[in-house]
Nucleic acid binder design. Structure first.
Lengths: 235, 235
DNA sequence: CACGGTCTTTGAGCTAACGCAAATCCAGCG
DNA sequence: CGCTGGATTTGCGTTAGCTCAAAGACCGTG
């Protein structure tokens, strides 16, 4: 099982490594293709593998206390799934599902841990990734704790535009299938409220929604709405 | 500036270190006493120090988008403040305030980074701490995204009991001054709703509240209420 | 012991958001 | 080309939780 070491070169995690070290990583990896809606792993299952997203999007969700599951984050190409669990044993504490066809690079955690031990330059990078993830999580916590639903949705969309925006003639499209259900699970609300909010913005020309797709027509207006103190979503 | 190396022995972060290494850490540290309500550092300020709580409680908060600030977590003895920021430069992204008289162990980030480089056993421990913090943050995110306010408060209290519960004749006291304002900032609600909820539980004999203090009288009932699907807080 | 400031309680009204039900729309498939 | 199942829209009633206002309770201090 070997993939192109150059694939790893572009990732900031691996940028400090020598070509030789990158090759060692590449030699130990295997590729896993995923179909849309296929589960990568589920909550509780013992974590025997570390996955890196090469293409597609993976949603990381957890079973909320009541209601539907909550989406903790959406992993984009170049991001790891549950990096924290790769360093010490235990079960996954989230469920990972492919939102669309995707491809993962997979290391067995045993091999991965050995590699991390042997390559001292890696650990600081991993710590930095963890810190980044923690910082993101805290940001989203503040959002959900202090903003009303429409603004939370706006923030979520802006983040997705940054991470997965593809420019089109009519605006910027979020470049993977995203249902309003998902958007609700991402912002801690219901799909009904999401639908109402989006159609309202659609009427105002901010957006164009479709079946599992969102096209942002007026990014500045959306950004403004996300931060404005007074503005409301109502027509 | 030198403190007792034994002080560091009890902490799991430092448990893998040799006595000599612990001494190196202890030699580089300085102590900082804090009065109640004193700020340790504020959001944005360049992070030049890494702090470890020796005694007291420190609240880590962030300015919410609207409303009041949001409390991200409360740091207890043995926990670091903003560990992530100690590894790479940048400003603090939270504000740290002492909830009561406290004492911190402080390293300059420069020295700290040098020590981390020199003691290879440390980095994995730090990564594990970061992972722990991330996992906690995700747990609280799920809570706030999927539970109603009373249950969020119950969960917060249970967590605080675990972290700072002191047994008393009448029950378990949360062993540091905690205002209802703080409790509200911790659970993403208002102090009014917190007050109503607590007084309701007080009537039911679950709690005894006071000025900046909470005494849990019936822990099982509180735990039950936190997870129950149906029960309500109303009398 | 009176004072001032902080913290808490309580009331009243209001609205954002939920929950349910039902209609509608759409993509893929046979 | 019509079926089917998922996704979205919309209406309507309800309520949890917010906001504002004001009154109490408590603590430390002068």
């Amino acid at each position: 099982m070997s993939i192109d070491p150059d694939l790893l070169r572009g990732l900031s995690v691996f940028s400090a490594l020598s070509n030789e070290e990158r090759r060692a990583l590449a030699d130990a990896v295997s590729l896993r293709p995923l179909r849309a809606n296929e589960a990568v792993f589920v909550h509780g299952q013992p974590a025997t593998e570390l996955c890196l997203v090469l293409s597609g999007r993976i949603k990381l969700s957890k079973a909320g206390w009541a209601r539907d599951p909550v989406i903790l984050r959406i992993a984009h190409p170049g991001e790891f799934l549950e990096l924290g669990r790769s360093l010490r044993p235990g079960g996954y504490d989230v469920t990972a599902t492919a939102l669309c066809g995707a491809e993962l690079a997979v290391w067995s955690t045993q091999v991965w841990r050995r590699l991390v031990d042997e390559i001292p330059a890696m650990m600081p990078c991993l710590a930095q990734l963890l810190e980044q993830e923690l910082s993101d999580a805290q940001g989203r916590f503040v959002e959900i704790a202090s903003l009303d639903v429409p603004r939370r949705i706006a923030h979520a969309l802006l983040r997705l535009v940054n991470q997965a925006g593809r420019k089109e003639a009519a605006g910027i499209r979020i470049d993977f299938p995203l249902s309003q259900q998902d958007l609700a699970a991402l912002t801690g609300t219901t799909l009904f409220t999401v639908s109402r909010t989006l159609t309202c913005w659609e009427r105002r020309g901010l957006l164009a929604g479709g079946r599992r797709t969102v096209l942002v027509r007026d990014l500045p207006a959306l950004a403004n709405l996300a931060t404005a103190t007074e503005a409301n979503c109502r027509v």
